[in-house]
Simulated scan of single mutants.
Amino acid sequence: MKTSQVDFAFPVIGFTTDEDIWGWPDLDRLTKCGSLTLKDRMQDGMEIIASDGRRWRVLSVTRTGRAEPLLSLRRLLGAPPQSRIEHELEALEPVTLKEVQARARASIKAHPDFWSEGEEGREAELRNRLADVDRVTAIGSLVDTLGLDTFESY
């Protein structure tokens, strides 16, 4: 199935094969990315998890066109171009909030540099981030709680 065929419960989160975590507030942002994402196939194998626990594995990503006009303000300010994409998805068994929290904690531990401002105070920052994950009461709230990034700039 294609991204456009799924009625996602937004926001959604994604876990890439290298244990990184991403988030999207809506379909527009989920289906937009920068050139590096396509070139490096960063989303291949990623799992997308909707706010209601349904999930899918990304089998492939296809560029379907530009995500913005050539003369957009972003482009005029030197931002990299963005592509509109569609994912080929495989439905997987739904997951619980506890399972998603465990994966989010594993992601934070796997990429401590993403979650702290440097060596000094790193342990406290990471503890705070892990505690933030433990406090969420809904899968979708991880997007805002952790300030998850999209692939638009990559």
Rank of each mutant, 00 (worst) to 15 (best):
I49F: 01
L92C: 15
L77D: 00
Q101V: 03
L142N: 03
D26L: 02
R135C: 02
V95E: 15
S35N: 00
L142S: 02
Q82G: 06
C33H: 08
G53L: 13
A102H: 10
Q82M: 12
A9E: 10
A91T: 13
L30M: 09
H87D: 08
Q101N: 10
L27I: 06
Q43Y: 02
R54Y: 10
S107H: 10
A91W: 03
A79V: 00
W24Q: 07
R103H: 11
D18E: 15
A131W: 03
H87E: 08
P11K: 05
D18M: 11
L76I: 05
S4C: 10
R41N: 07
W22P: 01
P94S: 15
M1D: 08
T37Y: 05
P80L: 06
L146H: 05
W56T: 09
R29T: 11
F10Q: 13
F10C: 10
L71E: 03
D134Q: 10
L89Q: 08
G14I: 11
H87V: 04
V6D: 14
T145P: 01
K39F: 00
L126S: 13
R41E: 09
H111I: 04
R66I: 03
R129M: 15
R127E: 15
V143D: 04
T137G: 09
L70Q: 06
A110Q: 09
L146P: 03
T96Y: 09
H111K: 06
G65E: 13
T16F: 08
W56R: 08
L71S: 04
M46R: 04
T137C: 02
E99R: 11
L148M: 09
V100W: 01
